[in-house]
């Protein structure tokens, strides 16, 4: 559904700030209900369900409503429509930081929050619970007979040398829609000029734009596209069913490392339940070894530490910069000029 580039552009131009709509709401019911918890999240429900189920094993009276949305919709829901949620989970770190900076997040202190190292939380309000790579996913079919690239530069070279093979078979986030895509793109641009060269090449061969990692991965495995750039590595790794069709790259020039994070809104109706859920989530996330109930690469699984190629996105007010209206406009203009050149 996100593949129709034209439609997306028209939609974006027509209503630059789409009103918040519940896309999908999943209810995890309980036998004896003594309270409800509303979680708004960008994570795929299939991936997140085990965490909620293990939470309900410990708290069998709490009904959980899981509302899956995009990160931009979270901002709209909370800052403009004053919707009440108990837990906000998002992969868009910049938006989470902005919520905390602008006073929408309540600080949370507990034994579980103490487990989170200083770099994994901000103002005791935003807590990271994963560390995930921005990966490049390749279709093994499409690359038959070619060396698999290990860096962005190698990818550029391959795309330039085989323009016909890859014509319109490159995919990446539509960063105008996806908060995470925007975050990855801005961090890439900040880290290296190679991002713009890559975008230039993407524009030349023709790029499909997506809203979500999972759809990009699906299309790579189906052979619709050959390259998916800046995909959540965790989603790709989790797909055992297509492991023989795809190849996941953590680029060796640099790999952006994103932290999925959770926060508790100040207007949460069920603060006690929200606190319990946060503690449950953080305990799972920051325990070694990783629990079977926790589907993400957790904070303590580290190949991550001390690797020169890894560029973790640092939590802090720096992330607010690319949310500035001017900055965003300029960045999107430059991006559109390169990616959408055809």
């Amino acid at each position: 559904m996100c593949r129709s580039i034209l439609a997306a552009i028209i939609l974006a131009l027509a209503s630059p700030l789409p009103a918040f709509q519940i896309q999908e709401e999943t209810v995890f019911e309980v036998d004896k209900k003594a309270g409800a918890l509303r979680i708004i999240s960008t994570a795929d429900i299939d991936l997140f369900a085990p965490i909620i189920k293990s939470f309900q094993v410990q708290n069998p009276m709490i009904e959980v409503h899981y509302i899956g949305v995009t990160s931009t919709e979270i901002m709209t829901a909370i800052t403009q429509e004053n919707e009440a949620f108990d837990v906000v989970i998002s992969s868009a770190m910049d938006l989470q930081i902005k919520l905390a900076n602008d006073g929408y997040a309540a600080p949370h202190f507990s034994a579980a929050s103490d487990r989170v190292p200083g770099w994994g939380k901000w103002r005791d309000s935003v807590f990271a619970f994963t560390q995930e790579h921005a990966a490049i996913v390749l279709s093994l079919d499409a690359f038959q007979g070619l060396d698999l690239p290990k860096t962005r530069q190698a990818l550029i070279t391959i795309l330039r040398e085989n323009p016909d093979r890859f014509r319109n078979r490159v995919g990446t986030y539509d960063i105008r829609e996806s908060g995470l895509g925007y975050l990855f793109a801005t961090q890439d641009a900040r880290t290296s000029e190679v991002f713009w060269r890559l975008s230039e090449v993407f524009g030349q061969v023709g790029t499909q734009l997506y809203c979500c990692s999972s759809e990009m991965i699906d299309d790579v495995s189906a052979g619709d596209i050959a390259v998916a750039y800046n995909v959540l590595g965790s989603y790709a790794t989790a797909r055992a069913d297509i492991a023989d069709k795809i190849h996941i790259i953590q680029p060796e020039d640099f790999t952006t490392l994103m932290m999925r994070s959770a926060l508790l809104p100040v207007n949460a109706p069920n603060t006690e339940g929200a606190g319990l859920f946060m503690d449950h989530l953080l305990t799972l996330a920051w325990s070694a070894p990783r629990s079977a109930d926790f589907p993400f690469p957790n904070g303590t699984t580290d190949e991550t530490a001390n690797s020169a190629k890894l560029r973790p996105i640092r939590m802090g007010p720096g992330l607010l910069v690319f949310l500035d209206r001017f900055k965003r406009d300029q960045f999107l203009n430059a991006w559109e000029a390169t990616i959408l050149q055809n």
């Binding site: 905390a100 900076n101 602008d102 006073g103 901000w122 103002r123 900040r190 640092r314 802090g316 007010p317 720096g318 992330l319 607010l320 910069v321 690319f322 500035d324 001017f326 900055k327 300029q330």
Partner: peptide, 25 residues
Amino acid sequence: IVVDIPYSAFSMLGSVSNDRVFYRI
């Protein structure tokens, strides 16, 4: 008038403390 806020403008504030940052131009 075009304002291009450099990343360091805010990240330098974040490196000193965890304080909230606001701005207007």
